[in-house]
Write a protein that binds this DNA or RNA. Structure first.
Lengths: 326, 326
DNA sequence: TTGTATGCGTTATCAG
DNA sequence: CTGATAACGCATACAA
């Protein structure tokens, strides 16, 4: 079934059928005939041929470091929701945390296979910069603030600051921090900065022995909480940069029979799906991950429709969720 | 940059360049020239034009009910890994648990936009059947056994049976079951069947008052555990059909100050990422979700390469993970 | 081995 | 308003 077949059946030209399908610049009687022919045959235009002509795939590529992560899968859910609504499709590129794959996908997309790309990256290197600039299609970043492309990110500094203030408000003065490396600008840098600044503003001194850095997993929380509890001078609160880390930390504390929050308070950031059933339920900050995905999708769509729309940066807020671990 | 430009630069015909890129049916000297031209210009063939010609996109569509789920995101991670290896791309279609979207995507894919589709469905209705049969591209199912297409699934019956045996082995005789509706053949039907059969085989009678059905969320576990604990005759163990349900149940029990596993033992199925930090850590069955994704990808690729390869069904095993909740 | 010609299924142009 | 006709960029049958 091609457009010509339909044209023949309806006794019109292929061009008329095309117009019927698109602009709709066609007389009433022919419109009828064409409609009939299409309905009878169940004809559907070939996407590929359309794409070849129009140069638009109505697909957006989404590059992520991993999919089996609570926060990322929520962002993807948001993207997917918005895209579905706008009748776009979602090509998922999972880099498995390998920056080489990230560049590879970016280059693959360069062949204008997709109309735009949403990049959920933990770090933007010079190579990213270079490759992205060489692309002819728009790119937006979600989860990190990037200067040369539009981005949508969370108020990492603010959330960390507010959370720290909450810890202090609860009467804790000896606060440890378990975080991630500083190659992650959002989680590794901003959250730590918010923490330190709040400490300083409250005239509490930052104890670098209590600053522990590890990866984005529960082990980081578990191992570092253990180390913290082995020190002669122990903290009475632990601020974990992510919920996952916090879960590991609480698990460790429970094993050590350290009472949370009485002996040591714990909090995280992210409001992961399962943290409310921890023992005790985790105090954390909700980050509207899903919303950030939706907004990212809106942004890239806007860029696609209107390529010269200005670069913009949107910061999403947060909400402290008080539960019992703090 | 088109193939003709390269041809001109190298002083050969477009066909020669095409052959250089594909079959490689070209003389040594021309080969050199072409190579040079391509390198100089950084030419890359247009995917779209290739697709229009060859009718193959090297994309497989993956239809899922939701992405922000521990088990599903792990399956997708496996699919993604395998696809990356084979140089295929992954078009993600998230139905948001709406069966209408499932059909819609199936139909979208019908326009041979993808070379094959992997369906992660909870239920296969007659409409699914009809639409799938009308597709010209192969479809494989992951997570459910389906008779008319290749599928890969988990040993739900066996896992439930083994887990029940384990509960009995621990000395429990009054075992409740919190499950999901029977429109889900794997989780709703097979796991319950494994449970019942094991009970029968051990001469324990099945108490239908202790059979609770709800959705795939923590609330199901929470609410139904609460109901169970309000009964005059309480169970001393609760078998939850999924880890998520189990987490809700344990949370409830903790709130009620019911000791797990001393007063009531709990177990789940799935080995979710966070269940090992529950208090107490959850006894569950590992399901190799990631592996099932990889296998599903291999299957669809095989079908794509070799369309008349036979329908097959692969069942993946499981492993009981003993922790402290049982 | 090589090049020419043709077709894949649309959409855009342009003259009627 | 309408219908030829020319691209879009590539791959292949076929003739050379």
């Amino acid at each position: 079934m091609t457009i010509s077949d339909i044209a023949k059946m309806a006794g019109v030209s292929p061009a008329a059928v095309s117009r019927y399908l698109n602009d709709g610049y066609v007389s009433e009687e022919k419109r009828e005939k064409i409609k009939e022919a299409i309905e009878k045959t169940g004809y559907v235009p070939s996407r590929q041929a359309q794409i070849l002509r129009t140069k638009r795939t109505k697909i957006v590529g989404v590059i992520i470091p991993k999919i089996d992560s609570d926060s990322i899968s929520r962002v993807v859910a948001g993207i997917s929701e918005q895209l579905l609504e706008e009748d776009y499709q979602l090509l998922l590129a999972n880099t498995e945390n390998d920056i080489k794959n990230e560049i590879k996908y970016l280059k693959t997309f360069k062949q204008s296979f997709v109309d735009g790309v949403i990049l959920i990256a933990t770090a933007i290197t010079d190579e990213h910069r270079k490759v992205i600039k060489s692309l002819k299609i728009p790119v937006v970043a979600v989860g990190q603030k990037v200067d040369f492309i539009s981005s949508i990110y969370h108020d990492d500094y603010g959330a960390a600051y507010a959370m720290t203030a909450k810890i202090i408000e609860k009467g804790h003065k000896n606060i440890a921090f378990i975080g991630v490396p500083d190659w992650d600008a959002a989680v590794g840098v901003d959250r730590l900065r918010g923490f330190k600044d709040c400490l300083a503003d409250n005239k509490l001194k930052f104890n670098s022995d209590w600053l522990k850095i590890g990866m984005f997993d529960m082990d980081n929380g578990y191992e570092n909480a253990k180390k913290l509890m082995k020190m002669k001078k122990k903290p009475d609160a632990i601020f974990c940069a992510t919920d996952t880390i916090a879960m590991g930390a609480i698990h460790c504390l429970n094993e050590l029979k350290v009472k949370v929050p009485k002996d040591v308070a714990v909090c995280g950031i992210g409001n992961g799906k399962t943290v409310r059933v921890m023992e005790p339920p985790l105090t954390t900050a909700d980050y509207y991950y899903r919303e950030s995905g939706k907004e990212g999708a809106r942004m890239i769509l806007e860029k696609i429709e209107n390529p010269k729309s200005p670069v913009m940066a949107t910061m999403l807020g947060f909400e402290i969720i008080e539960r019992e671990s703090l």
